[in-house]
């Protein structure tokens, strides 16, 4: 990325994108905001997940109550198993994306002085969008499945 030998005229004529001071200061400046959002997302996600796990615990305590037999394909037990597994998949995808985002914004704080931090931060920001996209996709599919199963 370093190119100090070129004159300003040559620089202006060079096509491409630049690490301008304005861009770098904007990226460094948004690091604190990004970390705050990620911490808030962790807290909110934690509350929602606790609520969902609480419901799952209640369902499983009913399914596996003493004196009750458990058969996978009876009494919608397969649906409870599916819901529990999909909940854990959602938890993984969500926390993976938020952790990538948190690390990205932490690296952005150092990006004005450290090129490696800037590169890794941008890579992790991309991964945050990728994991968030998978999480949103799986979540929408599960909501659609739930709707079709109950109302169709």
């Amino acid at each position: 990325m370093e190119n100090n030998q070129t004159t300003p005229e040559e620089k202006a004529a060079t096509p491409g994108l630049w690490l301008s001071n304005r861009w770098l200061s904007a990226v460094t400046g948004m690091a604190g905001l990004g970390k705050t959002v990620m911490v808030m997302a962790l807290i909110v996600g934690g509350i929602r997940i606790f609520s969902s796990l609480y419901v799952q615990y209640y369902i499983w305590s009913m399914c596996l109550a003493p004196g009750r037999d458990f058969f996978l394909f009876e009494d919608y037990n397969w649906l409870y198993v599916f819901n529990t597994l999909s909940l854990f998949a959602l938890i993984y995808l969500y926390f993976r994306s938020i952790m990538e985002g948190y690390k990205a914004f932490s690296l952005f704080q150092l990006s004005s002085v450290d090129d490696e931090a800037l590169l890794e931060g941008q890579e992790r920001l991309g991964r945050m969008f990728t994991w968030l996209c998978w999480w949103a996709g799986v979540y929408v599919l599960l909501v659609a499945f739930d709707y079709v199963f109950h109302y169709a």
Partner: peptide
């Protein structure tokens, strides 16, 4: 946009 002396190509 005109790059200044401090600006570097993104790469």
């Amino acid at each position: 946009f005109t790059p200044t002396d401090d600006d570097r190509p993104a790469g």
